[in-house]
């Protein structure tokens, strides 16, 4: 199930950069183009490169099924929990109560072009991280199930 040595060597060089670029897109989702879904898809693509180049059984640390399920449901729960936290304080559902409040992610932003600050955006960075983790877990999970069913088919 392993691919050729050329593919494996190229994968070894490329995949850390792809995954780190995906994390960059997720974390800077409120400043630069991209966001949770795009960054999660890029990270999942980097993981899929490793999964297709190697056999998935050689990589127990990168693609553990329990960890992926935890990512998938934990991301969705974090997303809904961030929306419900506004209701607990007394605002409507999904109200951005952190923006401009001065606490974490709460630096006020002036109107017009500006260089941008990572510590802005209210709960939008939290939402981006939640959706990114969820998309990463979900897409890798689909590939992992397809590959494991394929190996079962080939052995039978």
């Amino acid at each position: 199930m392993r691919m050729s040595k050329i593919v494996r060597t190229a994968t070894d060089i490329l995949y850390p950069f792809i995954i780190i670029f995906g994390f960059y897109i997720i974390l800077h989702g409120h400043l630069t183009p991209g966001g949770g879904f795009q960054g999660g898809a890029v990270v999942a693509t980097g993981t899929a490169l490793v999964l297709v180049a190697y056999s998935w059984k050689e990589l127990p640390g990168l693609v553990s099924k329990n960890l992926l399920w935890f990512q998938e449901s934990g991301g969705l729960l974090l997303f809904i929990g961030a929306g419900l936290a506004a209701m607990i304080i007394g605002f409507p559902f999904f109200y951005n109560w952190l923006a401009g409040s001065g606490s974490i992610f709460g630096t006020p932003v002036a109107f017009g072009p500006n260089p941008g600050d990572l510590n802005t955006g209210g709960f939008l960075p939290i939402m981006n991280i939640a959706v990114g983790v969820e998309v990463w877990g979900g897409l890798v999970m689909v590939l992992l199930y397809l590959l494991s069913a394929l190996e079962r088919e080939e052995r039978a």
């Binding site: 409120h30 630069t32 992610f105 802005t120 981006n128």
Partner: peptide, 21 residues
Amino acid sequence: GQVQTGTNNQCTSVTFDFRGF
């Protein structure tokens, strides 16, 4: 949008805040 949500990327401010559902 930029002042209310504190983001420079208006696409994200629409998809995650104004259209969060």
